[in-house]
Design a protein around this nucleic acid. Structure first.
Length: 604
RNA sequence: GGUGAUAUAGCUCAGCCGGUUAGAGCGGUUCACUCAUAAUGAACAGGUCGUAGGUUCGAGUCCUACUAUCACCA
C-alpha cells in the first residue's frame, strides 16, 4: 500500500547564494530520499522555501543599501534556478513572505496564546537614539565583559567565543554610527513556554530513539534535561511578520518562531495551488504518514524540540470544525530528523565573509549536475563533518562515476549497438553465471532500498556502485569481444545479461543521478521520463504574486522495480554519460577560494 | 564553562550487542585484457585503531582523564 511521506527540508536564508554545504546538509539527502519514495509509488510531499526574514537578510540589505525585500527576492529567484538545475525535486519551494505563510504564522501565534502556551515578559535591550529603534545585537559592538576584547559583537565575542548579552557590553556602540547614543530600554515580549511541553517531548524522543541517529537523540534528550527555558518569540524589528495583537504594531514575530512553520504552511499552500485545499491533511493529520525533517546539525534543537512544541501547542489547528474534520488524529510530529553534520571546504570551514565557499550557481555552469550530486552524496557528512576537496571531486568523478559506471554503460551499449544491429540481443538461454549476475542486480533493489529507507544514503550509493563494479568483473570473465569471433550465441547471452544489469542499475542509481539515468533510459530504447519535471510557477495572492519551484510528477514512469528488458528492443545510439574532467580544473577551482566573488547571472 | 559528536591504512570512510590474522573504495606496485571516455580485471604492498590509564580471560568496540576539531547552549 502506498505510504504518505512528507519530506520537510530546512529553509535557507535568502541573503546569499546556495553553496555545497546547503546541498550536502539537507537538500540533496532530501531529494534522494524523495525520489526513492516516488519510485516506490508512495505519496511524497516535499516542501521548503526561502526564509525571507531574519537579521542576516537585514544585515545584507543594510550592507547594500537596499530594502530587505529586494535582497530576499533576488536570492529567492536564484534559489529557484539553482535548485531546478541541480534537480532538487520540491513539490513546492516557496518563501516565508507569502500571505499564506503570514496568515498561518499569525494563527499559530493566536492559538498558542489562547491555549496559554505564551507568556509576557519585559526584556532589557539596547535602544538607538539616532535610529529611534531597538538595535539588533549584530549591529552593536563594545568591550567584552568576559575577556575585555575591545571589539566584541553584541551577540558574541570573536576573541573568546562566548555568547554575550549586548546590554552588558562595556561601552556599547552602534557599529554603523559610532557616535550614536545607545540606551538600555525595557521592552515587552511574548515568550513560548517550552517547559510546559517537557513530558510530551521526552515521551516523543523515547518513542523515536531507536530509529533516529544517535547524536540527534542524545543531543535533544540532554537539551531537555538541562531544563527548557522560555524563548522570546517577538522582536523589536520592522522586517518580519506582524504580531496579530493591537498595540503590538511596532514588533514582529521572531524569525525562528515562524520559519520552522514553513514545513506546515508550504504544505497548505501546495494543497491550495493544486486545487485540493484539504490535501495537506493526508500528511499532517494522518497517523500512518511519516514526516522526515532534513536539516544540518546547527538546527537540531529547533527541529527536535521547538518545532515539536509548536505543533503540540496548536494541535487541532484547521481541523477543529466538524465539517472539515476528516482526519481526527493529532497533528503529526516528525517521524525522523536525519540531521547531517557539516561539509568543510578543502580542510577549512565554510565562511561567507572570507568567501571560503563553493557556490552552486558557479559550479553548475561548469560541471554536470550528476557529477556534483555523485561527489557530494559519496561525501555526505552523515556521521561526522566531511570535506569537499577539488582533488577528491576530480578523483571520484573520473575514477568512480566515469570509470566504473559511465564506462560500463558506454562499453556495453556501444558493443551491443555495433555488434547486434542496434538491438538488445536475442538469446537462446542464459548460463548460470549470467543468471547469477542478473539475480544479484535484482536483489539489490531490496538492499539499496532498505538503506535508502533508513536514510543511510551514502551506504546505499556505495552498494549500488559495488554492483557496477561486479558487472565489470563479470564482463571481463565473459569477454564477449572474444566470444563474438567464435561463439556469437554465447556473446548474445552475456551482452543481454549485462544490459539487464545496467537497466537495473539505471533505477538503483536514479535517485542519486536522475539526469544520467534519464539519458541511459533513452539509450536503452525506452520512451518517457523516469521522473517528473521541475517548473518555476507564479502564484498570485491578494496583494502580491510570488514564484515557486514545483515538481510535476504527472508524466513520471520510473518505478523501483526490476528490469523487464525485452530482446529485440531497438537501442538508440549511445554517447558517453559522464564528462571526463581535466586535472587542471583542480587548481582552477581552488583559485576562487578566498578571493572576492563576482556574482554571475544563472543560465537555465 | 556545560552538552553532543568526531579522531581507524597516503586520501575518503565502514566497523552492530567487546572475541580467531582490523574492512571497503580511491591512490600505489605488478600482471592480464583491448569492447570502452588509457576506461576494465586479477594479485600484492600499506593502519595496531588521537594520547594516557582502567575494567576484562580478551577492547578499535566498555569506563576515566586529557588533547584536537565541529555544533549547540550559558
Amino acid at each position: 500500500m502506498a505510504k504518505y511521506i512528507h519530506v520537510s527540508v530546512a529553509w535557507p536564508y535568502a541573503n546569499g547564494d546556495l553553496h555545497v554545504g546547503h546541498l550536502a546538509g539537507a537538500y540533496l539527502p532530501a531529494d534522494i530520499f524523495a525520489r526513492f519514495h516516488r519510485l516506490k509509488g508512495n505519496h511524497v510531499l516535499m516542501v521548503s522555501g526561502s526564509d525571507s526574514h531574519g537579521t542576516p537578510i537585514s544585515v545584507e540589505a543594510d550592507k547594500r543599501g537596499i530594502p530587505a525585500r529586494e535582497v530576499f527576492e533576488h536570492y529567492h529567484r536564484r534559489f529557484l534556478l539553482t535548485q531546478q538545475k541541480v534537480g532538487i525535486s520540491y513539490d513546492l519551494f516557496t518563501h516565508t513572505d507569502t500571505e499564506n505563510h503570514h496568515r498561518i504564522a499569525q494563527d499559530f501565534f493566536t492559538r498558542l496564546l489562547e491555549k496559554g502556551h505564551l507568556y509576557k515578559e519585559t526584556q532589557k535591550l539596547l535602544y538607538s537614539a539616532a535610529e529611534k529603534r531597538f538595535l539588533p545585537d549584530r549591529y552593536v559592538e563594545g568591550e567584552c565583559y568576559i575577556c575585555h576584547y575591545p571589539a566584541a559583537r553584541g551577540d558574541q565575542c570573536d576573541n573568546c567565543g562566548n555568547l554575550l548579552d549586548a546590554t552588558l557590553l562595556i561601552g556599547p556602540r552602534n557599529r554603523a554610527t559610532p557616535e550614536d547614543k545607545l540606551i538600555v530600554r525595557e521592552s515587552e515580549h511574548y515568550f513560548l513556554d517550552l517547559a510546559r511541553f517537557e513530558p510530551q517531548l521526552l515521551k516523543y524522543l523515547d518513542e523515536h530513539e531507536h530509529h533516529w541517529r544517535a547524536n540527534v537523540v542524545r543531543f535533544s534528550q540532554n537539551f531537555i534535561a538541562d531544563g527548557l527555558q522560555g524563548r522570546p518569540i517577538t522582536r523589536d524589528i520592522d522586517w518580519g511578520i506582524s504580531v496579530p495583537l493591537s498595540g503590538w504594531e511596532d514588533k514582529k514575530l521572531y524569525v525562528w518562531f515562524e520559519a520552522v512553520m514553513g514545513y506546515f504552511t508550504a504544505s497548505l499552500e501546495w494543497a491550495k495551488n493544486i486545487g485540493q485545499p484539504d490535501a495537506w491533511k493526508q500528511w499532517w493529520y494522518n497517523p500512518e504518514a511519516r514526516i522526515y525533517n532534513f536539516i544540518g546539525k546547527d538546527n537540531i534543537p529547533f527541529h527536535t524540540i521547538i518545532w515539536q512544541a509548536e505543533l503540540l501547542g496548536v494541535n487541532g489547528i484547521y481541523n477543529d470544525a466538524e465539517e472539515v474534520k476528516s482526519y481526527d488524529a493529532d497533528l503529526q510530529l516528525p517521524y525522523d530528523v536525519p540531521a547531517n553534520e557539516f561539509m568543510n571546504i578543502e580542510g577549512d570551514k565554510f565562511s561567507k565573509s572570507r568567501n571560503w565557499a563553493i557556490w552552486l550557481p558557479d559550479i553548475l555552469e561548469r560541471y554536470q549536475p550528476d557529477a556534483v550530486r555523485y561527489y557530494v552524496a559519496m561525501t555526505f557528512p552523515e556521521s561526522s563533518d566531511s570535506d569537499f576537496s577539488w582533488e577528491g571531486f576530480l578523483s571520484r568523478v573520473n575514477n568512480e562515476l566515469l570509470a566504473t559506471w559511465g564506462n560500463l554503460v558506454n562499453r556495453m551499449l556501444g558493443f551491443a549497438y555495433k555488434r547486434f544491429d542496434g538491438k538488445v540481443p536475442a538469446y537462446d538461454h542464459l548460463t548460470p553465471e549470467d543468471e547469477a549476475i542478473i539475480a544479484q542486480s535484482e536483489a539489490a533493489f531490496e538492499q539499496v532500498g532498505a538503506l535508502l529507507e533508513a536514510v543511510k544514503l551514502r551506504e546505499a550509493l556505495q552498494t549500488a556502485m559495488a554492483l557496477a563494479k561486479d558487472a565489470n568483473a563479470y564482463l571481463d570473465r565473459r569477454a564477449p569481444w572474444k566470444s563474438i569471433k567464435t561463439d556469437p550465441a554465447d556473446t548474445a547471452r552475456a551482452v543481454y545479461a549485462v544490459l539487464k544489469v545496467i537497466d537495473n542499475l539505471k533505477i538503483l542509481l536514479s535517485p542519486f543521478l536522475p539526469f544520467t539515468s534519464q539519458k541511459l533510459h533513452e539509450y536503452l530504447g525506452y520512451d518517457g521520463q523516469l521522473f517528473g519535471e521541475l517548473k518555476i510557477e507564479t502564484y498570485q495572492e491578494a496583494t502580491r504574486p510570488h514564484e515557486g519551484l514545483v515538481y510535476d510528477g504527472s508524466g513520471a514512469i520510473g518505478r523501483w522495480e526490476k528490469s523487464d528488458l525485452q530482446p529485440g528492443t531497438a537501442l538508440r545510439e549511445p554517447a558517453p554519460l559522464v564528462v571526463k574532467l581535466e586535472p587542471e580544473m583542480v587548481d582552477f577551482e581552488r583559485g576562487f577560494l578566498g578571493q572576492p566573488r563576482d556574482e554571475q547571472p544563472i543560465t537555465p
